[in-house]
């Protein structure tokens, strides 16, 4: 992590505010790794009805962390977030209805 002395000469035009340092990125990766480990653990440890909600929450958190930090949505223009979220929300709504019409959720 030899970054401290070079981070200062980031050009002005790249002012996406303060980008995280390499160390910060590694911490985030560590968190992602831990969540992944927890996800995989559910395969071996049975937690009953809570399984699917737990998996979904962990998936969303991982997704959000990568999008917010690695894809810089936290620091970048809201316009980018808007397009991405539009795509995600539209996809989820349309395909949720799609699967509902196929009675996917009820057939078990």
């Amino acid at each position: 992590m030899d970054t401290s002395e070079t981070t200062t000469d980031v050009e002005e035009e790249h002012e996406h505010h303060e980008h995280p340092s390499d160390g910060k990125y590694m911490q985030i990766a560590l968190i992602l790794a831990i969540i992944t480990a927890a996800e995989v653990a559910t395969y071996f440890v049975h937690i009953g009805d809570a399984l699917i909600p737990t998996l979904m929450v962990m998936m969303v958190v991982k997704f959000w962390i990568v999008a917010a930090w690695f894809m810089h949505l936290r620091f970048d223009s809201k316009m980018f977030t808007r397009f991405f979220v539009s795509g995600i929300v539209l996809a989820i709504s349309v395909y949720f209805i799609f699967l509902t019409v196929f009675e996917f959720w009820t057939e078990g």
Binding site: S21, Y25, T36, V40, F70
Partner: peptide, 28 residues
Amino acid sequence: IPFTSVSSFVLLMSSLTMVLALAAIQRG
């Protein structure tokens, strides 16, 4: 599942190295 977990982890870590590549070029 164990095998896929490993390859999933590999891909996840490639996101870290990608962002480090970007940070590197941004500081020249």
